[in-house]
Simulated scan of single mutants.
Amino acid sequence: MVDDVFLLGGELPVRRLGLGTGGLVGPGYWGPRGSRAEALALLLTAVERGVTLIDTADNYGPDLAEELIAEALHPYGERLVVATKGGVVRTGPDRWHVAGRPEQLRAMCEASLRRLRVESIGLYQLHRFDPEVPLAEQLGALAELRSEGKIRHIGLDTVTAEQLRQALELVPVAAVQNPYNLMDRSSAEVLALCEARGIAFLPYHPLGSGALTRESAAAVTAVAAEHRAGPGQIALAWLLHRSPVLCPTPGTGSLAHLAENLDAATVRLTPRELAVLDALGG
C-alpha cells in the first residue's frame, strides 16, 4: 500500500504528489509563460484536486511564480504548504549566480514573505550552497529566521550526501531537492540518508525534463499500457512506490497535463512491474 501523505519535519502533513511552479514561467525561468489567467486557473485547480504542497522559488520569473501563487490562493487553506527557495539571483534566461551571505538570505526570505503575503514560510530551501560563504553562516542565517518564526522548516536543494550530513550537524533539515527519476538514480545515497532521517526528498525533473513522457523505455510503455496510463504517469507512480519519503512536485503550465500528473497517484504498480522499472536504473 502506498502512503499518500508525508509528515514534513515530522509534523506537517502534505500530500506526497504536489505541484512545481517552474512551468508557470517562461523558458529559462524568465518572464511569463502563457496568460496570467491560465496560470491562476492551474494553481486553483491543483488545490481543488487536493494538492497540499506547492514548490516554488523566488528566482522563478524572477518573483513571478510567488506572486501568482499569492494572487491565486491567498488566503491559504490550513492544509496548504507553500515551499519556496532563496540563495540564487537570476539575471536572465538560464543565467543565475549563488548569493549565500547571511544578509542576502535574510533579505530574500523577507521578500518572499511579502510576495506570498505570509508571516511564516512552511518550507524555506537554500537553493544552492554558496562556495564563497561558510556553510555554518548560510545555515545559521536560516536558523535565525526559523527561531524568529519566519521559517517553519529548512530545506536544501542540490546537495551531496556528505553535504547533507554536514548540514544536519548544524540545523534540522526537513527536505532535500535533488535530481531523481526512473532513469537518473545519481542521488541514491542522498535518498537513503533521507529515508534514515525521515527527511522529505523532492525529486526535481521527476519526468526527466519531459523525456520520460516521450521516448521512454519500451518497458515503461508496456507497463503504461497495462494501466491505460501514459509513460509520465508511470514514472510518477514509480517514484511514489519507490520510497515513502519521495514527494514529487512535477511542474506544468497545462491543465490537461496537470490532471494527468495528479491521476498518477491512483496508479498501483504490481511487484513484477516495480521490478521491471527498478531495473531501468542500471
Rank of each mutant, 00 (worst) to 15 (best):
H127D: 06
S120T: 12
P250E: 01
L277D: 00
R214Q: 14
L12H: 08
E71Q: 12
A46V: 00
G155T: 05
Q138P: 05
D55L: 01
V173W: 02
G149Y: 12
L123G: 06
D130T: 11
R268D: 10
M1G: 15
H74C: 04
E162Q: 06
G86P: 05
L182K: 08
A192R: 14
A225S: 15
D184A: 02
G20Q: 06
L262P: 00
G23H: 11
G20I: 07
D58C: 03
P27K: 12
R49S: 01
V5K: 05
K150F: 08
H127L: 02
E66H: 08
D130L: 05
P62G: 08
E11A: 15
P13G: 07
V267C: 00
E110W: 09
C194E: 08
A222V: 06
W238F: 08
L19W: 09
P13F: 00
A200M: 11
R242V: 09
A256M: 03
Q125Y: 07
S147G: 02
L164W: 09
A229T: 11
L8N: 00
P248T: 08
P172Q: 00
V267A: 05
R114A: 04
Y29A: 07
G50H: 12
T213Q: 10
D263L: 12
F6G: 09
L113W: 06
T252P: 02
E215M: 06
R90S: 15
H205G: 14
H205L: 11
E38Q: 14
L44F: 07
R272I: 09
S216L: 09
V82N: 05
P102M: 10
G281I: 04
E66M: 01
A37K: 12
R197L: 10
S147Q: 12
G9I: 01
D55I: 07
M1W: 07
G210F: 01
T21V: 05
L42C: 00
S147W: 09
P271Q: 04
L64K: 01
L274M: 15
V98F: 10
A46H: 02
A175G: 05
E132W: 08
R214L: 11
N261H: 13
R15T: 14
L255Y: 12
A107H: 04
A264I: 04
L19P: 07
A235W: 06
W238L: 06
M108F: 15
V47E: 11
G86D: 01
V82G: 04
N181W: 01
I121H: 00
T160E: 01
H97V: 13
R268L: 13
G9S: 11
G281F: 08
L277P: 04
M108A: 15
M183C: 15
N178Y: 10
R228A: 13
P75S: 04
L191Q: 01
P93G: 11
S243N: 09
A200R: 10
S120P: 06
M1N: 13
S35A: 11
D263E: 15
E273S: 03
A200L: 09
G77I: 00
V173C: 04
D278W: 07
V245F: 03
